[in-house]
Design a binder for these strands. Sequence first.
DNA 1: CTAGCTTCCTGATAGC
DNA 2: TGCTATCAGGAAGCTA
Length: 277
Amino acid sequence: MPELPEVETVKRVLAPQLAGQSILSVTVCQPQIIAYPDAALFSELLTGQTIQSLSRRGKFLTLHMESGDRVVIHLRMTGQLLVTPPDYPLEKHTHLVAELPGGMQIRYIDVRRFGRFWLLKADEADTVTGQDKLGIEPLDDALTGEFLCARLGYRSKPIKEMLHDQTIVAGIGNIYSDEILFEAGIYPGEKCADLDADGWNRLAASIKKIISWGIEVNQLTADEYLAGKGKEYRNMPDLNAYGREGQACARCGSAMEKLIIGGRSSCYCPKCQRKKP
DNA sequence: CTAGCTTCCTGATAGC
DNA sequence: TGCTATCAGGAAGCTA
C-alpha cells in the first residue's frame, strides 16, 4: 500500500533509469487500468515518446514526456511499477508493458487492479486525475498546527479519518496515519473539534517527522527496489502502531488496541494516546 | 456542503 | 483436505 514515502521512493529509484529513455511500444493487457483516455489511445499516443523526468504529488506519480505530454499514475493498494532488465521473468498480474531500448521494459503489476493510468496532452488541463483537488504536501512549510486547525477544527469526524482526506493534506494513508497519531500521542477516534491548539501543533510536527522518516528509511538502490520493496510495500520496518494490536507499546509497554475508524483498522496505545474525557 | 454506504479486486488467513 | 467467510484498503460513486 504505497503512501507518499513509498511513491517518493519509486520516483527516486526510477527517475535516473527512465530519464531520456524512449518508449518503443506499449502493450496494455488489462484495459481497465487506463482511466483516460482509453487503452488503445493511451498506447498509440505514448508510443515513440521520450521520457524527460518524473515527479510526485501526494500519492500520484507523473512521467513527463519531452513533448509536454504526461503520464499520471496512481498505484493505489498493490500497484508496482518496475523497470526490468532483458529477460526478466514475467510476473502474474502484469497489466502493462512498455518496451525501452536495449530490451529494458517498464512493467506495471497490480494484483488488485485498483491502480490507474492517465495520459494528458501537453495543452490539456488536468481535470480527470483528481490531482487538482489535492491538499498541501506534508513537508510544505504551509502545513502548521494553525493550518490544520483552520481546515479541520470545526469537523465532528475522528482525526484519524480526516488525515486520510487527500484534499486537506496529500499523501497519508492508513499505515502512516496510525504512526503519526502514535507519535503525536493523539487518540485516533478523537473528534477534530475536540483537539486544542497544542494537539494541532503536535499533529503537524508529527506529520512532518513521520513522513520524513518514511522517506528516509525507504531509500533504496535500484537493485534493492527490484529485488524486494518495489514488489513488497508491506515490508515496513520499525512500525510503532500499525498492525501492532495486542503487542507492547514501544513507549510504555501497554498492550496496543485496535479500533475501526471510518472503516479502517486503527492501532493505538490506550495509555499514550488517551481519549479525552 | 457533509455523512454514510457500496464498489472495485485478489490473496491470505481463520474457522469449521 | 477443502470449503466458505472475512479482511486488507485508496478513492470514486452513489444516496440521503
